[in-house]
């Protein structure tokens, strides 16, 4: 069993992902057990306020702990980059909670695209629209913009080199230019509460991947049942939980010394989010420089 200590129960605004997501997932996971203090733990599950997160993660790495970090990994690109460097230097596994890429439909979509099922992809369209729940005081771009950006990276295996963002921080449209002339458009944000969508649940979450030889349409809210009753009408998710798969990845990463999802993914997502913020500020597309060499 891998020993885990929970550090913090806060996030952006009113978030408590530690108790709503990570604690129950650790409790039910066969490879982990919760312990009371950081000293006893091999892994720290860190969900402290965003402003303190980068420091808390860096301190944990220096103490030789593996880390599961709430998303975003850190408040700034500089902090995320430093975390990537530190994790490599200390030989620990840091997994940022980009758990949306582990949705059951998305996992098979990623495999299908990477196996050439639609030929060479040339465009992706994505909607990531949450309904209801507490709006993030940072704006939703900072809160969950990284989810679809991370999924795109997993789908395409391509970095973003130019970002144009428009709309509002609560419902933003990102126009991304990737390597090899591939383009994508992401609508990401929060709309008001909708009947039968649990507060903060995804009202729309889909991807259309267009390729030289076909189109893949992914409704990432599947697999699900449609359940209708006298009072309700809605989907009931039937796939494995995305956070459970995230913990599988963490456990496998600790065993292997390197996880399938790591700080570099957080760094690359953060680059896009910060470029999008700059683009919103100046009303122009913003170029992203070459990735910083980390020696990894």
């Amino acid at each position: 069993m891998i020993r885990v200590a929970l550090v913090g129960n806060a996030g952006i605004g009113s978030q408590d992902h530690q108790n709503s997501m990570y604690r129950p997932a650790f409790e039910r996971h066969p490879r982990f057990e919760l312990v009371d203090t950081a000293e006893e733990a091999e892994v720290l599950s860190i969900a402290v306020p965003l402003a303190e997160r980068g420091t808390a993660v860096a301190d944990a790495i220096r103490a030789g702990k593996h880390v599961l970090a709430d998303k975003p990994l850190a408040a700034t690109l500089a902090e995320a980059t430093e975390i990537e460097r530190l994790a490599a230097a200390h030989g620990v596994v840091v997994v940022p909670a980009h758990h949306q890429r582990f949705g059951a439909a998305l996992r098979s979509a990623i495999a299908a695209v990477r196996a050439g099922r639609v030929g060479l992809p040339w465009n992706v369209q994505c909607d990531f629209v949450v309904a209801g729940g507490d709006p993030a005081p940072t704006g939703e771009l900072v809160n969950f913009g990284l989810y679809p950006v991370d999924v795109l990276r997993a789908l395409l295996g391509l970095e973003v080199h130019r970002v144009h963002a428009t709309g509002t921080p609560d419902l933003v449209t990102l126009l991304l230019d990737h390597e090899h002339g591939v383009t994508s458009t992401v609508v990401c944000g929060r709309v008001p509460a909708l009947r039968d969508v649990p507060p903060g649940g995804l009202a729309v979450h889909r991807y259309r991947i267009s390729g030289s030889h076909g189109v893949l349409a992914v409704d990432a809210r599947k697999p699900a049942l449609q359940v209708r009753t006298t009072d309700t009408f809605g989907p009931v998710w039937t796939g494995p939980g995305t956070v459970d798969v995230l913990l599988d990845v963490l456990a496998a990463g600790i065993a292997a010394g390197r996880a399938a999802l790591g700080p570099h993914d957080a760094v690359q997502a953060q680059r896009v989010i910060e470029a999008a913020q700059r683009s919103m500020a100046v009303g122009q597309p913003v170029a992203i420089g070459q990735p910083v060499e980390t020696g990894e």
């Binding site: 428009t166 709309g167 419902l171 449209t173 267009s210 030889h213 189109v215």
Partner: peptide
């Protein structure tokens, strides 16, 4: 914001 896609480029 309006996001409009017009295509004659898709496969099949």
């Amino acid at each position: 914001t309006a996001v409009c896609e017009m295509s004659r480029a898709h496969r099949p």
